[in-house]
């Protein structure tokens, strides 16, 4: 399945990836090739098959409701791009 340039731009926007125009053409070609590869699946009859999300037939384990974590703000914010008074800073978000 071939994607057009606008579709590639839309997907890049959805995934918040900045691409320049010359990259768009390259991604258009590569993504179309990948979609051709995966389109093989459409020929398979899976009407009676339950999807498998997880390789083992396991069920979710439950955690006791206990507070096990303590404040590590200073430690965690050492790797942050920008903080102030314990807050992570980003350009102003308008609601």
């Amino acid at each position: 399945m071939a994607l057009d340039q606008q579709q590639v731009r839309d997907i890049a926007d959805l995934a918040r990836l900045q691409l320049d125009d010359n990259q768009i053409t390259e991604y258009q070609k590569n993504l179309s090739n990948i979609l051709d590869l995966v389109d093989q699946l459409s020929a398979v009859d899976t009407s009676a098959v339950e999807p498998l999300a997880h390789p083992l037939d396991a069920v979710q384990r439950l955690r006791a409701d206990e507070v096990s974590e303590s404040n590590q703000r200073e430690h965690f914010q050492q790797c942050a791009p920008q903080t102030e008074n314990g807050y992570y800073l980003v350009p102003r978000v308008v609601e």
Binding site: V38, S42, V44, V49, P51, L52
Partner: peptide
């Protein structure tokens, strides 16, 4: 459905 669900179904066939 055409992609993700289908792939998960094929995943079961492979398993």
């Amino acid at each position: 459905d055409a992609y993700y669900k289908k792939a998960q179904q094929v995943r079961r066939l492979i398993k």
